[in-house]
Design a protein around this nucleic acid. Structure first.
Lengths: 334, 334
DNA sequence: CTAAATTTGTAGATCGTTCTTATAAGGGGC
DNA sequence: GCCCCTTATAAGAACGATCTACAAATTTAG
C-alpha cells in the first residue's frame, strides 16, 4: 500500500538499515547519503508506519486521557477545558485516547504497551482502583484535580479548599452570618474540599455553622434548583448561599426568582468555577476561578517529562491557585 | 515483559500457531486443545498485543473522532454530547482518539493504517480539505452535523433548516412581524441553514425580511450579548429575536435586562439547541431541540457497520428530527 | 488391508520498523 | 607491505501476532 523503508532502499540501492538510520539522523551515516535518502522519502511521501515502530520499540506513542465519568457530575465546560489543555500540549507528539473510568468494564487494556502514560482528571474516589491498576502496570501517571492519599502519585490540584475559604470569608466579611451551602456530588473529592474551606472560614471568623444548613447537590443545574427550593422552605432562611459550583448556583437562582425574591437584595449567592456564563447571569455571579485548563496543561507537561525521563522534581503535589472573582451577587449587610 | 502466545506454546508444548488458533476459536483445532490453551491463557492473564495484531492485519482498531475546532464556536455541551455518544457505541471495540481539525498542522498521520474509520463532527466548510484527504486515503468516514455537497460521503444531519423554520413560524404565529436574527459563526454551515429556515418561514407567511435585521454572532455568550446591544440601538426595534443558538440567546437576554427591558413582555426571544440551562433561564427559553448525542450515536453505529462491511443502505444522508420546545420567552401579540 | 480423506498440528513467512553484529574500503603508522 | 583504526554500509534478528503451506496421525472407504 504505502511506501516503506524497504522500497526506498530498493530505489536507492542501499540497505533498509541505511534508510532507517538516515531518516533518524544517525551519526553513522554520511551526510551525502542522508540527503539522498531524505530526498527520495520526500518525493514518495514516505511516512513511517507507527504501528511497526510501536511494536519494535514496545512503546505506544499514546496517552490515555481518563475522566471519572462522562455522564452526571462532569460539567461540559470542565470536560472541554480538560481536553483542550491536554491537546494543546500533546498535539502531534502522541495520540490521545479519551475514556471514562466509570465506563471501563475491565482493566484488560490498561497495559504499559497501550499507554506511554496516563492522565487522569479525577473527580471521585472510585477512581482509586483504576489508579492502583495503572501503577501496578508501571505506567507513568499524573492525577489531576483530586488529592490522592492512598498512593504515591504526582498530582496537580487547584486550591479548592482555599477557593471556597476565600468565597465564604468574603460573604462573612460582607456581614453575612447565616450562610447555607449546596454541596457537590457525594463522592466527589472537590465537594468535600469545598465544604472544608467553607467550614474553616466560619471557624476562623468565630462563627458556628449549623449542619441543617448543608444541602447535597449533584453538580448539575437541576440539583441546585431543588436544593434551593428546600432552603427556601426553611423557617429561618439564610441570607447567603455558597454553591459548590456555578451550575448549581445557576439552578438555585432560578428557584429564588420563582419565589419572587431577588439576588442579591433578598438573598446573596456565590458559585464556584467561574464558567463562561456566570458573567451573563443577572446579577453577574460572584464565583471562584479555578484553573481547569491550566491544570490540564500542567498535568500533560509533567506527564510528557515523566515519559521522556526528564522529570525529576521531588514535589509530588502541584497546587494551582484559585481566586475569587467578585461580581454582583453578594449584598453588603450590617 | 507480558506473556506472549509463544510462552503459552512453550508451556503446553504445542506450536504458537495452535495457541493463536485456539484463542481465536478456529475450527482447525480440537475442542480439547482449545480448552487447555484457554485455561493456561487465563491462568497467566494473557492478553493479546494489540500492536502486533495491528501490524500483521494492517488494521488500527482505532476510530478517529474529529471536531472542527476545540476553541471558539464549539459549545462545551455540544462537545460533551458528541464524545459521549461515540463512546457509548464504540466502547471496548475500538480505541477512540480525539482531535480537532483546526489544530491539524498537516495530514501526515491521516492514513488508513492509523484509522479504521473516521467520524467527523463538522461545523465548518474548512473541514472540506480534511474530508478530501480522508476519502483520498480510502478511510471509511461518516460526517455528522453538516451537509456535504462536494464529496459523496455518508452524513448524519439534524434538521437545522426545519428547526429554525418551526421556531420562526411559531413567532410569526404569535403575531410577531418584525423579527431580528442573531446568526451563528460565519463559516459554520449550521448558521447558514438556520438562517435559511428563518427566511423560509418569513416567505411562507408572506412576510418580507429586512436584511438590516440580521446580525452576525460567533455562537458564544459574548457575541450574543454584543449583537443584542446593536439591536437595541436600532431606531425601530424588532418585537422578537431569533438566536442561532442558546448561548447567544443567553447573552442577548443579559443585554435586554441591562436595558431595563423584560423578556417576553417587551421583547421575545428564541434559541436553538435546547441546552440544559435553557429551562433555568428566566423566563425559560423557547428553543429548538437538536439531537446531538443521537446524531453522534447514529454516526458511530453507521461507521462501525461500514468498517465491518455490513453497511449497505443506499441512503447517503440521514436526517434526524429537530423539534420546537415551547417555553416562556415568546409573547403572544396582536 | 491398502489408499484416500479427514483431522490435528507444525514450521516458517509476514507485517515495517529498529537494533545488533558483521564486513568492506580507505588511510595512516612503522 | 602488514596491521590497525576509522568510516560507511549491509545483513539479519527481533518485536508478537496471523496466515499459508505442508506433514503426521487418525479415520473411512472399497
Amino acid at each position: 500500500m504505502s511506501i516503506t523503508i524497504k522500497d526506498i532502499a530498493k530505489i536507492l540501492n542501499v540497505s533498509h538499515t541505511t534508510v532507517s538510520r538516515s531518516l533518524n539522523d544517525s551519526p553513522l551515516i554520511s551526510q551525502e547519503t542522508k540527503d539522498r535518502v531524505k530526498e527520495v522519502a520526500k518525493k514518495y511521501k514516505y511516512s513511517p508506519n507507527v504501528t511497526a515502530r510501536r511494536l519494535v520499540l514496545s512503546r505506544s506513542y499514546n496517552i490515555g486521557l481518563f475522566i471519572s465519568t462522562l455522564s452526571r457530575g462532569t460539567t461540559a465546560n470542565f470536560f472541554l477545558q480538560t481536553v483542550r489543555g491536554v491537546n494543546e500540549i500533546v498535539k502531534g507528539k502522541y495520540t490521545v485516547t479519551v475514556e471514562s473510568v466509570a465506563d471501563l468494564v475491565d482493566f484488560h487494556h490498561i497495559k504499559s504497551r497501550n499507554f506511554d502514560g496516563i492522565l487522569l482528571m479525577s473527580q471521585s474516589q472510585n477512581d482509586d482502583t483504576f489508579i492502583g491498576q495503572v501503577l501496578n502496570e508501571g505506567i507513568p501517571i499524573v492525577v489531576m484535580n483530586r488529592e490522592i492519599t492512598d498512593f504515591k502519585v504526582t498530582t496537580v490540584l487547584s486550591e479548592d479548599l482555599g477557593g471556597s475559604y476565600l468565597a465564604t470569608k468574603y460573604m462573612i466579611d460582607q456581614g453575612h452570618k447565616s450562610i447555607a451551602i449546596i454541596e457537590g456530588k457525594r463522592d466527589f473529592r472537590t465537594a468535600f474540599k469545598r465544604k472544608q474551606g467553607f467550614l474553616k472560614a466560619h471557624q476562623d471568623a468565630g462563627l458556628k455553622f449549623d449542619e441543617t444548613m448543608a444541602f447535597i447537590g449533584a453538580y448539575d443545574l437541576e440539583s441546585g434548583y431543588n436544593a434551593m427550593q428546600s432552603i427556601l422552605r426553611l423557617d429561618k432562611r439564610p441570607t447567603a448561599i455558597f454553591c459548590s459550583n456555578d451550575d448549581m448556583a445557576f439552578g438555585a437562582m432560578k428557584a429564588i426568582r420563582e419565589e419572587g425574591l431577588v439576588v442579591p437584595e433578598d438573598i446573596s449567592i456565590v458559585g464556584f468555577d467561574n464558567m463562561d456564563f456566570t458573567q451573563f447571569l443577572t446579577p453577574a455571579l460572584t464565583t471562584v476561578q479555578r484553573p481547569v485548563e491550566e491544570m490540564s496543561r500542567h498535568g500533560a507537561t509533567i506527564l510528557l517529562e515523566k515519559i521522556e525521563g526528564t522529570y525529576n522534581t521531588d514535589s509530588e503535589e502541584i497546587l494551582l491557585d484559585s481566586k475569587l472573582v467578585i461580581r454582583d451577587s453578594v449584598k453588603k449587610i450590617n
